[in-house]
């Protein structure tokens, strides 16, 4: 029953490689150049709805989550702005999506001018997938960031 580490390494490397493809090309193409990015669920549609079809660019937005979740049912997640935003721009909302869950929606945070654009919560992830965050800025522009979280099949009723 106890799997040797070699086999697990192979699995981890495999998952990492797949993730790299998705993040490296999929998102960039999907958000950057308007080409359809095939999320397995409604994530792509939810992003479009949120941005009104506008382009979301990479920027100081950051998604923080463990690389490997201890259990997919409770995964700590933070979204934040790392570094400075251009003067006069602030984050109004951050939409968080999970592209491998039955449905993409996770949370939508709303920040007033009296809040720091940063929030943490705990989320459910059905399998290894990307967490996608899109921030709506006060000037109508959008930022995006993503992070892959590996969700493994537990040995003990996991």
């Amino acid at each position: 029953m106890v799997v040797t580490r070699n086999r697990r390494q192979l699995l981890a490397i495999g998952a990492g490689a797949v993730g790299a493809v998705v993040i490296g090309t999929g998102l960039e193409v999907g958000f950057g150049r308007g080409v359809a990015w095939a999320a397995p669920n409604d994530t792509t549609d939810l992003v479009k709805k949120f941005t009104g079809g506008k382009e979301a660019t990479a920027g100081p937005l950051k998604v923080v989550a463990p690389e490997i979740a201890e259990n997919g049912n409770t995964v700590p997640l933070s979204v934040m702005i790392e570094g400075d935003l251009p003067a006069g721009r602030r984050v109004e909302e951050i939409l968080v999506l999970a592209d491998g869950n039955p449905r993409g929606g996770v949370a939508r945070f709303t920040f007033s001018a009296e809040a720091v654009p940063e929030a943490s919560t705990r989320i459910r992830l059905a399998e290894t997938q990307n967490i996608v965050a899109v921030a709506k800025m006060s000037d109508g522009s959008f930022l995006t960031a993503s992070r892959q979280v590996k969700v493994t099949i537990g040995g003990c009723g996991g």
Binding site: M1, V3, T74, G158
Partner: peptide
């Protein structure tokens, strides 16, 4: 088999402990 002979190893993706009881009742992430 798990908690004496194989703690500290992976059982599928779970990292097996000694099965100690000092934390119960325990909040499980699962």
């Amino acid at each position: 088999n798990c908690h004496e002979k194989n703690y500290g190893k992976f059982l599928r993706a779970d990292f097996v402990s000694q099965g100690q009881t000092n934390g119960f009742p325990t909040y499980r992430l699962q």
